[in-house]
Design a protein around this nucleic acid. Structure first.
Lengths: 217, 217, 217, 217
DNA sequence: CATGAATGAGCATTCATTCAT
DNA sequence: TATGAATGAATGCTCATTCAT
């Protein structure tokens, strides 16, 4: 039997049985389940190096398990990629949401989000990552990721819309376009040349928000 | 994952233009030199699929030559990548410059540039491409590309600066940050979800420029 | 880039340029071209062990080359299998034809063919081999092999037909069924238990032909 | 290619029929014991696809149990193969015997057997299956299967012998050779090309028996 | 009895690279 | 200039087998 195109669109097993957790913050030595460990490791690597450049061997070794173990938990590389990236997007969404629900003006909260994002290293431009990987993903996998990503923009969109009706924002802008503009501008944080222009990423975040808020004119 | 390359930082041979060109516009049948053909093909493929996903075989076949021929003209895959990407960035720079030197307000000219860029399909986010490839590039290759890219931002920077002193733009913005913001916003054109929001890419370009010019508030 | 289902239906290169052969019987040390060597080795192994149980590594090592070299000459395992088995069937056809065109009664000539076949070890039942491999072959490959096999039966069929009209054979039998019966009976040569019944394969061949000629009654 | 197996020569546990069977014809819903189910499934798969192409996973999944469960009942893949194939040969023997013990001439009864065999699809040539698997079997396993197969030929042999002394058959033929000839001819049923020659397998069986009985001359 | 998790070994396939011609 | 032939190293993936529970 030779490789055949596996077509599951995500993880092979459910999220692991609930209720079996010992209470309290786990001691850092507490063994985190392999499946979760693989997912985290894979996320980091894919974000850092893209799809092709990451081998399952690399992921496995970093986790201290064998390639075959990774295959026990995930049907294929595309399936693992899908699970890892989706998870990461959901975490990003949750983190962003937590900040956006705090007190303060929209501008203040967006600045907080920007500061947090620019502080992270691993932050590949999303479309590029998808374009590279999409040749290997099946339809279900592609749409699973697209949805997870859309969630992030939907979240921002809602807040922009709300600020539009409350008068905090000028009318006339398409709120979804604002969401995309905002995340596009945050990509500046990926550029070493841009980062070098300011003493800290917080300073860079501030400048970007200034521009975003008032425009160039 | 490929071997971390040989150490030439670019092409294997000099540009070899010994004045052998026949005068006038070449007939379309005129054989374009292999080196140039490979360079063009490689550019397109790398932009479309990233670094790893493009094999030298693919490039060679598309050019109708053998892999070994490609190796005659370029020392290694990283070397070819460097040459191809640099060339493309220089072309982009020239195209952009041509537009920026035309008549009209800065805003009009920036809009024209945006329309042109959004109309292209092959337009991978640059940082991502670099991050993927940089594992395979040596220092000389990396900086060769960085410089070519910097050229583009320098060009924009000059024009932003000039508009700042002429009063067309508000003072207080770092012109290089504006350049980065501008190119970052153009990346929105890569997102299928964003493109779907407007009937044409020209319309999308216009909306993005509106935002860029006046901000959200 | 990952494995994708290669679909060429046979060998990757033509049969190697003619006319470049040195005259006379080649000294046994004369290097036989790799492509041919691989083909012969593969034939033997597939016949002996079936499709799955033979790895390209095994073939390559037996030939003293690397797996990658085999892949230089043949697109895939199914392609190599197709080329190897077809070649073998054509050789069998030629050998059989040579005998059938000699002098003598049909019975004598069929006996000669039988003796020759039973003397060979490598002689897997064909349908079984095909059934095992056919999951991996594409349509073109399947039919290429089927045709080569049909050639053998066609050859026998012609001779049975001719003998029918010349009165050497009883009328009323479907000549193609006779061809199949004949080759089916030769499969007895594969069975160790059957071989053990007679002192030599020639003796076994004679007994089988007796039965084939006069029936059991 | 698989490891050349552990050394048990058959099943891991005794047949374990501790009289726990409820009396009467079992309701079709009655759970058939896992061991038996695995054996049946394995038989079908091995006959259909050969040895290598069948994975224990496939067998397990088709049975609705886990691979580890299969290992509880059988020591290894070779052991399971041995058990499955032997069982199948014994069943074939019983079925054949049942027919041969009915009323009628030998010819009529052999025809009935032939019709039954040609009607089955799953009917891999036995020698080929053995040759493929034998690399993985140990001596005990090999001979266990050989014996089971020999049983079938012994059965036929007895009937041919009896018919020889009763005058129904011509003297002078080795009855065991007749048995082998008969089963070899039945292999024609495996060949799609041959099957296509007649409207039904019964018709094919009749033609084959004609030839077997009277020969070609 | 049964299974979830893990693994070592192997396989088909691809790729960047080399070199004699 | 160009290429046909070859290869070492890696990759995604599968499989038979083991073992603690």
């Amino acid at each position: 039997m030779q490789p055949t195109n596996s077509n599951s669109n995500g993880s092979a097993r459910p999220d692991s049985e609930p209720g079996k957790r010992s209470p309290g913050r786990p001691r850092s030595e507490e063994r985190i389940p392999v499946r979760e460990l693989v997912l985290q490791t894979a996320s980091s690597l894919f974000m850092e190096k893209g799809y092709d450049a990451v081998s399952l061997n690399e992921i496995a070794e970093l986790c201290g398990v064998t390639k075959a173990s990774v295959y026990y938990h995930f049907d294929s590389k595309p399936a693992l990629f899908t699970a890892a990236v989706s998870r990461m997007l959901q975490l990003a969404r949750k983190g962003t949401e937590r900040i956006l629900l705090q007190e303060g003006t929209l501008r203040e909260r967006l600045l907080a989000v920007a500061e947090r994002r620019l502080a992270m290293t691993q932050h590949i431009e999303f479309e590029t990552l998808m374009r590279e990987a999409s040749h290997y993903l099946n339809e279900g996998q592609r749409s699973a990721i697209r949805e997870a990503e859309q969630g992030l923009h939907d979240l921002l969109c809602v807040h922009f819309e709300r600020a539009g009706t409350s008068g905090e924002l000028r009318h006339g802008h398409n709120p979804m376009l604002l969401a995309h503009s905002y995340t596009a501008l945050l990509m500046i944080g990926n550029r070493p040349a841009a980062k070098r222009m300011y003493p800290s990423t917080d300073e860079l975040a501030k400048r970007i928000m200034d521009m975003f808020w008032s425009g160039v004119s």
